[in-house]
Structures are given as C-alpha cells and as structure tokens.
Simulated assay, not measured.
Amino acid sequence: MVTNNAAGFWSYTHRDNEAEGGRLQRLALRVREEFDLLTGEELNIFVDREGIAWGDQWRQRIDQALQSTTFFIPVITPRYLQSSECRRELLHFVGKAESLGLKELFLPIVYAPIKQLDDKSDSDDEIVNLLRRTLYSDWRKLRLLDENSAAYREAINTLATRLVDIAHELEENPPELPTAEELANAHPADTPGIVDVMADAEGAMPAWAQSMEDLIKLMTELKEVVEPVAARLQESDREGKGFAGRLLLLRDLAGEMDPLADRLMFTANRYADQVVTINPAVLAAIRELEEESATSTSTPEERAAFVAILNEFANAMGPVVGALDELVQHLDQSKGLSRDLAKPVNKMTRAVSFLRDSHSLMEQWTTSPSIGRAPDSVLA
C-alpha cells in the first residue's frame, strides 16, 4: 500500500476555470488519473467548493490530517489572491498543517504571472510571502501548452509523482506532533511567540493591541476626511463650478486619503503577518490543551489563561475589522467618480482584505472545543 487514504482539495476560482475553457478542472482530473495509474489506488480530489462533498469533507479531513493524507492544491492566479474565500481556505489549511508538522501537504500551483512573487523586496501580501517559502509548481508557461503535448503530460506526471512520494513518505515515516513551544521558537524572536503568550499573556500582546489602537485611530481620521466631502461637492455645484470643480475637490480628497491608505496598509500588513506567523503555534497550543498534553512545558492553568486571552482579543478585534470593512466598501462605490480616488481606495481594499484574512484565523482559535474550558479561577 503506497498511500494512506489520500485525498486532495483542488482550490481555484470558477472564473479562472471559465477563462481557461475548463482547463483547471481537467488538470485536476488528469492529476488524479495519473496518481491512480502510478499507485493503483484512488486519489479523491474535491474540486467543487460549492458542492456538498467539499463541505462535508473539509473540516473532517483537516482535523484528521494525521490519519489520512490530505493535500491542499491551490491554483494561484491574481484572481485567486483577490478572493477572500480562497485566501481564507489557504491560510486555514497551512496553519493547521504546520501545527501538525505536515507543511508538505501544501502544494500550490502558480498558474499565472504574479508580479509580487517575482519582486525581490518583501511583499505586503502574507500569502505571496508564504508562496516564496514554499516549493510550488510553476505552471506559468506550462498552461500555454497543448493539453495533449508530451511536455504537458510530463508536467502532470511530475506533479502526480510528487503527491505519491509525499504520501509514501508520510506513511512510512509519520512526523511527530510539534509542540507549541517548538513552533513558536521556529520564528524570529521579535514575533510574539506562544511561550511568551503563556508565560505572560499581558506582555505578549502589545503589538496586536497597538495595531487595534492604530486601526481605530485611522478609521476616525478617514471619517473626518471623507464625511465633509458631500457638502463641499454640493457647495461647488451651487457656485456653478461644474465638473471641473468636482474633479478638483475629489483630487484633493484623494491627496488627503493617500497617506492614510499607506498607514492602513502598513498596519494591516504588520497585524496580518503577526497573526499568520503565530497561527500554527496557537493551534498546537490549543491541541495540547484539548489533549491535556504531558509533553507541554506549560501548566493547564497557563494554557487555559492563554485560550482566554485569545478569545478576548478576537472578540475585541471583530467589530474593528467589520467597521473598517464597511467604510472601505462605501468608499469603493465612489472611486468611479474620479481615477484619482482609485489609488487610495484600492490600497484600503487590499488592507482590509489582509485584516479579514487574519481575523478569520483568529475566529478558528475561538471556536475550538477548548474555548470555554478555562477554570473560573484562571479567568477571574
């Protein structure tokens, strides 16, 4: 037996598949058939996110990743990076896989050119940075080949063989579960680590608390800049300044919004990076709490206090992200009035996307069965 009940989630946008004439779905099926040919066993690939099978298997497969080899194969394109649902799936899977010592189950396919991926400087997108640290399959040129060409078939064989090799290695040499401490210590010292969180929860959260404070301040400043504009436009119309007068006001508004948009991008990127970095260690710590792990260096009381502080912080951050999202959606509707507004509004839209990604990860922390198990003496 080569594989251990292997399966894969083929994550892509339907619009990309339509633009490619169905090639993305056909690629998934051909990889599955090649896997079956190489092993004599079936690789169950879930390709329809909206189907019942995907929903039924997603949580079960991720939670039981150690018992069954489950790959996550995202087909990365610019449109994929713009999809909040796709981003959320990817970040959830990667965090869970890393918390279980199974990073190799994340097998991205870069299907179209991603400008940020080729830039040498750090990206403001945490998923792009994650891709840079991952051995991805590069299909940017392969996708242009005839599907029946020898080179295309060879690429399918290479991808399927990689799946077979990983499945075989995991079955022969299953990894040991990493502890929260090991995962936290694997990241730079200036990032909030789980060890710090458990040792002193109050002292471990200053960066996140500062991010939340900065976001609230930025939201207030944005409202102060945006809210008077409607009245100014009406006054300009009354004075007979016409479209030229409106254009000048909107250009001034864009000039005021742009530095705020840059600050929002910086804050959102810093916060998202912190959450994505610490996520695997958080999941490992929650797992230890649920299993009452004997290998953990922290006490049950410390782990319970840790869970409580996460719950409190996530609940506090939720309304902030929601309010910013609502404000930026309102601004997005107005960017068609002037191309000058498009630049700052697009920056803000990306920033809010990063915040949604991060908060989605935090929400899974608080929905763990261990939440609420903290003894009263710890939370009092």
Score class of each variant (00 low, 15 high):
residue 286 I to M: 15
residue 207 A to Q: 13
residue 249 L to N: 07
residue 232 R to H: 10
residue 294 A to I: 12
residue 149 S to G: 05
residue 47 V to L: 14
residue 168 H to G: 03
residue 212 M to K: 12
residue 163 L to Y: 09
residue 241 K to N: 13
residue 158 T to A: 04
residue 241 K to Y: 14
residue 285 A to L: 14
residue 148 N to E: 15
residue 343 K to Q: 14
residue 185 N to L: 07
residue 174 P to Q: 14
residue 248 L to Y: 07
residue 237 D to C: 02
residue 82 Q to F: 05
residue 29 L to D: 11
residue 209 A to P: 00
residue 227 E to Y: 11
residue 8 G to R: 01
residue 140 R to D: 08
residue 257 M to R: 02
residue 90 L to W: 05
residue 314 A to E: 13
residue 311 N to K: 15
residue 136 Y to C: 02
residue 379 L to Q: 14
residue 214 D to K: 09
residue 123 S to P: 08
residue 101 G to Q: 02
residue 263 R to S: 07
residue 22 G to D: 11
residue 145 L to V: 03
residue 29 L to W: 15
residue 251 R to L: 13
residue 101 G to L: 04
residue 365 W to E: 04
residue 33 E to W: 11
residue 30 R to P: 00
residue 129 N to E: 15
residue 290 E to D: 06
residue 120 K to P: 01
residue 331 L to H: 03
residue 224 E to Y: 01
residue 341 L to G: 09
residue 380 A to C: 04
residue 128 V to W: 00
residue 218 L to V: 10
residue 241 K to D: 06
residue 66 L to D: 13
residue 265 M to N: 12
residue 87 R to S: 05
residue 292 E to L: 08
residue 11 S to W: 07
residue 353 S to I: 01
residue 213 E to H: 09
residue 176 E to G: 08
residue 256 E to F: 02
residue 259 P to T: 08
residue 323 A to S: 08
residue 62 I to C: 06
residue 29 L to A: 07
residue 337 L to S: 13
residue 305 A to G: 13
residue 172 E to R: 12
residue 190 D to N: 04
residue 195 V to H: 02
residue 81 L to M: 14
residue 101 G to P: 01
residue 242 G to V: 08
residue 83 S to V: 10
residue 65 A to Y: 00
residue 285 A to C: 13
residue 245 G to C: 11
residue 160 A to T: 13
residue 264 L to F: 15
residue 200 D to E: 07
residue 80 Y to W: 04
residue 282 V to A: 14
residue 101 G to C: 03
residue 125 D to Q: 03
residue 214 D to M: 09
residue 323 A to G: 02
residue 69 T to W: 00
residue 380 A to Y: 04
residue 113 P to R: 10
residue 25 Q to M: 06
residue 302 E to V: 01
residue 134 T to C: 02
residue 340 D to E: 13
residue 219 M to S: 04
residue 310 L to Q: 15
residue 30 R to G: 01
residue 355 L to N: 03
residue 366 T to V: 09
residue 215 L to H: 03
residue 114 I to Q: 06
residue 243 F to N: 11
residue 4 N to Y: 03
residue 149 S to H: 10
residue 256 E to R: 11
residue 226 V to W: 03
residue 60 Q to F: 07
residue 293 S to A: 10
residue 243 F to G: 08
residue 238 R to W: 05
residue 307 V to S: 04
residue 363 E to H: 07
residue 377 S to Y: 13
residue 128 V to I: 15
residue 154 E to Q: 06
residue 37 L to T: 09
residue 325 D to E: 10
residue 379 L to V: 12
residue 110 V to E: 15
residue 99 S to Q: 03
residue 125 D to F: 03
residue 62 I to P: 00
residue 340 D to P: 00
residue 313 F to N: 08
residue 99 S to C: 02
residue 256 E to H: 12
residue 116 Q to W: 07
residue 242 G to E: 13
residue 205 M to S: 02
residue 278 I to P: 00
residue 182 E to H: 09
residue 363 E to Q: 15
residue 300 P to I: 08
residue 163 L to G: 02
residue 139 W to E: 08
residue 107 L to V: 13
residue 284 A to W: 02
residue 69 T to V: 15
residue 133 R to T: 12
residue 245 G to V: 11
residue 370 S to G: 08
residue 328 V to S: 10
